[in-house]
């Protein structure tokens, strides 16, 4: 943590979060935090517990114990609606789109714009969707077709547009570029930088450190449900982070031989 960010209240602080499925501790006493305008990468192998941890913040899962603070206030997040109340928006790895509904319908799913007669205002939603899309993916014009017939990049834009449109303060992106080609990945990375500049705090989840290293300010590494450690990106190399991910070696303790082993 830099001296500059120390005195401020974190946007989000998750303290000692635990989630168990049956006897398996998917998340076991993990604490992480996020400051405004900061990108925290949450990395770890498959089954490390990244997605489960983040789902307790987005309201998709309840945590068994632990506390969540938003702007220093303790909050309880039981449903996705609760999370959205605190301006926490999530872009899920699965994108969470209803395939049979068009892009504006998906963008506003659960938060539809209504006319004064309480009916759906499809025109207003389409108009808002066109505005957001003009910024995110100007080439994407056929908004009125079901999402099922869109390309991977377009579907990703719909999921991102949904998060961006509602003025997220805290953005969770779960493997946002996993299904994208190089050009589309660059586009998403640009967007992350742009949102960060607007003061939004972003959790970037990935199983691959190469995807997120350049974007991240800090990196939290998880392994087998536990937090291995959180490091400032400026202080570490990719190899040191890899050692944390693969061998679970805490930051600063990796020896030369450990790092060499990585490349065998």
């Amino acid at each position: 943590m830099t001296a500059e960010t120390m005195p401020r209240t974190p946007l989000v602080e998750m303290r000692d979060i635990r989630v168990a499925f049956g006897g398996v501790h998917a998340v076991d006493g993990v604490s992480i935090d996020l400051y405004p305008g900061e990108v925290v990468a949450l990395v770890g192998g498959n089954g490390a517990g990244k997605t489960t941890l983040i789902k307790t913040l987005s309201g998709a899962h309840k945590c068994d114990s632990g506390q969540i603070f938003v702007n220093g206030e303790p909050v309880s997040i039981d449903t996705p609606r609760d999370a959205k109340e605190y301006a926490i928006e999530t872009i899920y790895q699965t994108l969470a789109l209803a395939e049979n509904i068009d892009a504006p319908g998906n963008m506003f799913l659960g938060r539809e714009l209504k006319t004064r007669f309480r009916t759906l205002d499809d025109s207003a939603m389409e108009s808002a969707a066109r505005q957001v899309m003009g910024r995110l993916n100007p080439k994407f014009k056929n908004l009125k077709v079901p999402v099922a017939s869109l390309s991977g990049g377009q579907r990703q834009s719909v999921a991102i547009a949904r998060a961006v449109h509602f003025n997220a303060k805290i953005l969770i992106m779960d493997e946002p570029t996993a299904a994208l080609g190089p050009a589309e990945t660059d586009q998403v990375n640009e967007l992350v930088a742009q949102l960060k500049a607007e003061g939004i705090g972003i959790f970037l989840i990935s199983h691959d450190i190469h995807d997120v290293f350049d974007l991240a300010d800090r990196i939290s590494v998880m392994s087998q449900g536990k937090l291995v450690g959180t490091v400032n990106k400026a202080d570490v190399t990719k190899d040191e982070v890899l050692a944390m991910i693969i061998m679970g070696i805490p930051p600063g303790q990796a020896t030369e031989s450990d790092l060499e082993q990585l490349h065998d």
Binding site: P80, T94, A96, L97, N100, I101
Partner: peptide, 17 residues
């Protein structure tokens, strides 16, 4: 709209609140 959303993707509907 929700009936159709649930039919299209129940998980997405749930996550949409």
């Amino acid at each position: 709209r929700y009936v159709f959303a649930i039919g299209g993707n129940p998980e997405a509907a749930e996550l949409g609140g």
